[in-house]
């Protein structure tokens, strides 16, 4: 396990969620599920974060915000769509102001469905995301060493 998947820091943004998934994301930090014992911190600064947890679907007003946060994060980074609204739009898919899930705005690596998504599912998704983060880090290192040789 490389260093980048130990104590990943995550940033959480509520796109147009009803808050149900957001409070379950915050519940992961609290003593019952306690991801802080793995070194995971919820940071507010996109440039400090490795993992982007997005909840809620995307609409015209927040699509730019989601993209801005994603672009500010440094490589390697992983996006986890928490909750069925972030995966596909959920029950609000047919609403006039819903474009769809978060993959309308940014590329998503892990989908964690549920309404509201359970903390166990979020932790599972983060662990899966860590595997993908490792692969991305390995690819970055390989590209760097190839550049050096060239």
């Amino acid at each position: 396990m490389s260093h980048s998947s130990k104590s990943p820091w995550l940033i959480h943004y509520d796109a147009s969620s009803c808050n149900g998934c957001d409070i379950e994301v915050l519940a992961c930090l609290t003593p019952m599920y306690d991801v802080e014992r793995f070194g995971i911190i919820n940071t507010g600064n996109p440039k400090h974060a490795d993992i982007f947890l997005v909840t809620g679907s995307v609409n015209d007003q927040n699509i730019k915000v989601v993209q801005q946060i994603y672009e500010q994060m440094r490589e390697p980074k992983v996006v986890i769509a928490c909750g069925v609204c972030a995966c596909s739009g959920g029950i609000f898919k047919e609403c006039y102001n819903t474009l769809g899930g978060v993959d309308m705005a940014i590329p998503v690596d892990v989908y964690a469905p549920g309404c509201a998504v359970r903390p166990e599912a979020i932790i599972d998704a983060v662990v899966k995301g860590l595997g993908i983060l490792e692969q991305k880090r390995a690819a970055l290192d390989a590209a760097k060493s190839k550049k050096k040789e060239a």
């Binding site: 699509i63 993209q67 474009l99 769809g100 993959d103 705005a105 940014i106 590329p107």
Partner: peptide, 10 residues
Amino acid sequence: AVNTKYGATV
């Protein structure tokens, strides 16, 4: 059409 980067378009 709403402009989205990264491939997905409405």
